[in-house]
């Protein structure tokens, strides 16, 4: 025994299984997972939560989270989450989707869920490419960005422009809380956690649809070291995808507790 008091300051959240992930070194999926697990633990919601995994790198998310989970067909997670939430209105239901899943094949489902004001939370990972299949062009791929299916760089004349999902969904009346954060440095990660907490609170209070977009790195498919990937995100993605709150329902501001959090 040590004479000094020992205080645990950092440990695995209860919402996490004790197993290594399959994510590449430096990938921010692990950070995003951890933030979700921490928030749900802090809210006391771990055992009332049902997660919906999507198709992409996070298809195995249910292996890492320590609560009930289902796995949706590509792009359909918001529809599946809707079916769960309408069956179990008291449960906390969230989807965890990448940019190919949410902004391309799943565009119909995400827009419809947001417009209905579906009481689900969406964690949207934007890493500007299809990670799982080896780095193809995604709807979010930046102009000029080289991917395995835009080898000369994304040519907007032929391949169109990136989609800013948060801005797009923020125009819908059903969307109560739609914000963008980034995971490239500690300050932004702390901001991301606060946003995830707010998003889940918005669901719990029945205010409406909530989504947090998280700008993320994909060092393997970007062909960068983890450190240079974070720099690239800050220098190239953040200017195109500004960090900020694009839709915050007035009732959220009204319900904000006085005296800070």
């Amino acid at each position: 025994m040590l004479d000094t008091d020992v205080k645990v300051v950092y440990q695995r959240p209860r919402g996490f299984e004790e197993r290594p992930t399959h994510y590449c070194p430096g990938c921010t999926h692990g950070v995003a997972h951890r933030l979700v697990a921490e928030v749900l633990e802090e809210m006391g919601e771990l055992e009332h939560t049902i997660g919906v995994a999507s198709v992409g790198c996070s298809v195995f998310a249910y292996n890492y989270f320590a609560f009930d989970f289902v796995e949706a067909p590509h792009g359909r997670a918001p529809a599946m989450a809707t079916g769960i939430k309408r069956s179990l209105p008291d449960a906390t239901v969230f989807t965890y989707q990448g940019d190919g899943d949410l902004a391309s094949i799943g565009m119909g489902e995400i827009v419809a869920a947001a417009s209905r004001g579906e009481l689900i939370t969406v964690i949207f990972i934007n890493n500007a490419n299809y990670g799982m299949t080896g780095g193809q062009m995604a709807p979010t791929t930046l102009p000029g960005q080289v991917t395995t299916s835009s080898p000369m760089g994304r040519d907007v004349e032929r391949q169109g422009y990136p989609i800013r999902m948060v801005e797009l969904l923020s125009s819908l009346d059903g969307a109560a809380y739609v914000v963008r954060r980034s995971l490239h440095d500690p300050k932004n990660i702390r901001m991301a956690k606060k946003a995830i907490r707010t998003a889940f609170e918005v669901q719990k209070q029945g205010v409406g649809f909530s989504m947090v977009e998280l700008l993320s790195t994909c060092p393997t498919n970007w062909g960068m070291t983890p450190a240079s990937a974070r720099v690239w995100l800050a220098e190239h993605m953040v200017p195109y995808y500004p960090i900020g709150d694009f839709k915050v329902s007035s009732s959220i501001a009204y319900n904000k507790p006085k005296g800070g959090d």
Binding site: V70, A79, M80, T82, R86, S87, G108, E109
Partner: peptide, 26 residues
Amino acid sequence: RAFLQAESELGAINMVYGAACTGRRT
């Protein structure tokens, strides 16, 4: 009880998929 007109048949069947996961008749 729950009724929802989905955005498409893709949406409808996946809502049913989610609802069926909860073990109730859908």
